[in-house]
Design a protein around this nucleic acid. Structure first.
Length: 258
DNA sequence: ATGGCTGAGCTACTCAGA
């Protein structure tokens, strides 16, 4: 079972890239963030032609998340979090493995920059509410997968120049602590679990030749409940899509579970 | 080096991203 997370930075502007990527990688489930479109303009038919069902929580212009899946999914929910700004940032679904049922949570966490503004406060409040809701889920002993664009640099190793980001909304200690708090509820950062000292990134800015210079950061993550660790087959950051023409600024992260 | 690029909405230019 191949589950992939990718911030595509507009599903419509990226349609050809996404279709080519699907043909190459053949995910069972593709979790998309920043689709930047309303539900009615989501290219359902294009994905249907490739054999996928689309579940969409869209929004005009900004944000928006979606799940496309080879198999039909149950219990789709677009109201996981109470969002005062009514931004479309979480979609959840149930995924059946052979022996376990996973609650899959696809997220696009607010960026939060610049710090010391209402945008930063929104990110903090959003994370607080998200963690509270996960806490409730965990108490029911569910097998949980949280994946997506967290907009959090977990550790110094996860960015090319930490000094530059230690007071940024992605790298501030206060925000990284939220990530630790989430993990301490009973999760593993799957990439870091399998790659103890490897420095790889999932995002590179469009400007300043960031991609060419490999000035990136690891901000897209898979968190798995401790109960699911035995199901992990592999985790891989696939840099290829970032090297293509007209790329997203993020690249996919690919999880295989049994 | 708080943005040099990119996308949406719209059709000139702002807002947002990280």
């Amino acid at each position: 079972m191949k589950i992939i997370s990718w911030n595509v930075n507009s599903v419509r502007a990226r349609l050809e890239n996404i279709k080519n990527y699907i043909k190459d990688s053949s995910p069972d489930v593709l979790l998309l963030q920043e689709i930047k479109t309303q539900n009615e303009n989501f290219p359902n038919d294009e994905f249907k032609k490739l054999g996928y069902i689309s579940y969409v929580f869209g929004q005009k212009s900004y944000n928006g998340v979606a799940i496309i899946s080879k198999c039909a999914l149950n219990n789709i929910n677009n109201s996981f979090i109470k969002d005062d700004l009514k931004q479309s940032r979480v979609i959840t679904a149930e995924l059946k493995l052979k022996t376990k049922t996973i609650e899959m949570i696809n997220i696009y966490v607010p960026n939060g920059n610049p710090v010391d503004t209402e945008k930063y406060e929104y990110k903090k409040e959003w994370l607080k509410r998200f963690i509270n809701n996960i806490k409730k889920k965990v108490q029911k002993n569910l097998n949980i997968l949280i994946a997506g664009d967290f907009n959090i640099i977990p550790e110094e190793i996860d960015v090319h120049d930490f000094k530059r980001y230690e007071n940024d909304a992605l790298g501030r200690l206060e925000i990284r602590k939220k990530y630790r708090e989430l993990i301490n509820l009973g999760f593993k950062d799957v990439y870091r679990l399998k790659n103890k000292a490897k420095q790889e990134y999932t995002f590179w800015d469009y400007f300043a030749g960031s991609w060419q210079k490999n000035f990136g950061m690891r901000i897209d993550h898979f968190l798995l409940s401790n109960s699911l660790i035995e199901n992990i087959k592999s985790i891989k950051i696939n840099k290829k899509p970032r090297s293509k023409e007209k790329p997203s600024d993020h690249t996919p992260i690919e999880l295989e579970i049994i």
